[in-house]
Nucleic acid binder design. Structure first.
Lengths: 333, 333
DNA sequence: CGCGTTTACGTCGTTCGTAACGATA
DNA sequence: TATCGTTACGAACGACGTAAACGCG
């Protein structure tokens, strides 16, 4: 058994049992993988894959067990290399982030821009998905970090660091009836109205739906999207009343949209940075965390990764505060 | 980075930084290890060990991190091999058990004898230690399983399976004043008396001490040992009143010792079989568990190892019940 | 001078890629 | 016939052991 054999093995598994394709992934030749797989099976004394003729048909149950453990081994080998790269002050590497569209579009750009300035040789891979899929991807190990929002407890079993708190905003076109409302908006005002919001709002356990349910209001979603820009577009087109994250709104939007603070209508959300506990952080990953959440003490992050997670993280600032500071800083420069 | 390099690395670490000694452990030559270590350090780009002249002086902090991860890798590689050996129906292997003297001397012999009959090629390594050290050894990965008793919750963070419940016995020589006591023994009767018991009873958090404290009795331990045979010997020699596990007593002992059931005086104990969650069990290890605890459903054990631990294990039988059954079986044969 | 490590060197085994072959749909 | 896997072969590399040199207490 060698690390190479295990690497080939999971590559084959990840390529849907296509050895030729797996060979390209690992930058080797197909006969090479074929032979190594055979050797591994010979050494272990059983079939990792069931064959149909010469082709691989399926992963055997025992094979799956081996693959699972091989993944752990390869992950730790990567960890060792990451450790070494950090120590060496190596500035190049990859960073894959899985997050929602709103974060990717409105929160991350400035942080990633700063990161790229400091680490030009780092390639950042952004994977924007729906709320529901983000943690799935993350937990399957396909991303180094996840950035995701919840209303209450941190998500999953990774190391979750609170970045900032934010509120929802209700948006209507300037001519809309609600735009000229003199009193404070109530949930009842939205009863029966066509709403435009995130796809995740359709799930019954979403905090939006629960807020409506608590108020006895039945929401009618006329249009949903994972993309905040689309939500704004459809609101502009008069398809309904938009409900989205405050981060998605800029001063520009206020020219033709009426923005109503939803902080009293809907529960406050917290955005979390989630790290895998079993993965060594490259130096630039820690830097990114600090860029997104300047209030974090870098030492707290280090300690948390070493297993000494604080009983309670400091309450993160509101997004509006962060934005204000950023604007002041921009003006000063 | 190769598995061999990592194996050599931890061997060097485990041999107290003596490469020559490590080479013997891994059945290789010293220059071989030296060279592989050098190559690994070259590849990673930093020193795993600090040197003093040519000798290795200490593990660097980064080196320690690498070694820790290397251990995980090697453990998973062993797991894969164990998986294969099970599937292959391989009957040879090693099984190291860490436990206390009482278990090793009075509980395990028959189970291990049966195991050796079924698996003659398995080498069992028993490591009998004090209560306090058993879990330490186990958690450092120096044993496949631990067998240990507690009064309440299962120990450590391994997979703890309850084997049986047992009571303490109070023993005195036949001529002793307590031997002819007509009424039930009370804790107060032991006040000020010289006691002979387990070393672990000296610790303030021991269940024995807590039972005494709850009754307002101050125990006086005239003699302690980890060895139940020694406790009996010293009781016979008149050094005091013995308090030990019922498993340690046989019919023979009742010839010259008066045995008083301590079940009402002291809380009931549970003996646990503790398995490492991160280690694949060889088939014979599961067999041993079944031999010690016949009430266990083998499928429950399998499921628990697969991560589906039952919310509550069945209440294990009393040791006295197990012993009765064993005697009946012996008579039948 | 013994102990332990490193360096040097020759041998052997292994891996890898190219090329040809075989099976399957 | 196109696709995918296996077998065959030769070249290159790497690992390992022996032997000798070096440093240190």
């Amino acid at each position: 058994m060698t690390l190479t054999q295990l690497r080939y093995l999971v590559a084959i598994s990840d390529s849907g049992l296509n050895i030729t394709q797996a060979a390209e992934q690992v930058h080797a030749t197909q006969p090479g993988l074929s032979k190594q797989l055979k050797q591994l099976e010979d050494e272990l004394g059983f079939q990792l894959f069931s064959r149909k003729g010469k082709s691989l048909a399926a992963i055997t149950p025992a094979g799956q067990q081996v693959i699972d453990r091989a993944r752990i081994i390869l992950a730790e080998a990567r960890n060792i290399r990451a450790l070494a790269a950090n120590l060496r002050g190596d500035d190049k590497g990859e960073l894959s982030i899985t997050t929602t569209h709103t974060q990717a579009r409105f929160v991350l750009p400035s942080a990633i821009a700063q990161l790229k300035q400091r680490y030009p040789a780092v390639n950042v891979h952004l994977k924007a998905h729906g709320d529901a899929q983000v943690m799935g991807l993350f937990e399957r190990g396909q991303a180094d970090l996840a950035i995701i929002s919840t209303t209450g407890t941190p998500p999953g079993d990774g190391l979750a660091v609170p970045l900032f708190r934010w509120r929802r905003a209700v948006i209507v076109p300037q001519g809309h009836a609600l735009a000229s409302l003199k009193r404070a908006l109530k949930l009842a005002d939205l009863d029966g109205q066509p709403l435009v919001s995130y796809e995740s709002s359709l799930r019954p356990e979403s905090s939006l739906r629960r807020a409506f349910a608590a108020a006895g209001v039945v929401p009618r979603f006329s249009c949903t999207s994972r993309d905040a820009d689309l939500i704004k577009t459809y609101v502009r087109a008069g398809l309904g009343i938009g409900i989205l994250a405050e981060m998605a709104l800029s001063a520009d939007d206020e020219r033709d949209l009426r923005v109503i603070d939803g902080g009293v209508l809907f529960p406050e959300c917290t955005t979390w940075l989630v790290l895998r506990r079993d993965r060594v952080l490259r130096a630039y990953t820690a830097t990114l965390a600090e860029l997104i959440a300047p209030q974090l003490d870098p030492r707290d992050l280090q300690r948390a990764l070493a297993g000494e997670e604080p009983a309670a993280w400091p309450t993160p600032p509101l997004w509006s505060e962060i934005e204000k500071k950023a604007k002041r800083a921009a003006r000063a420069a």
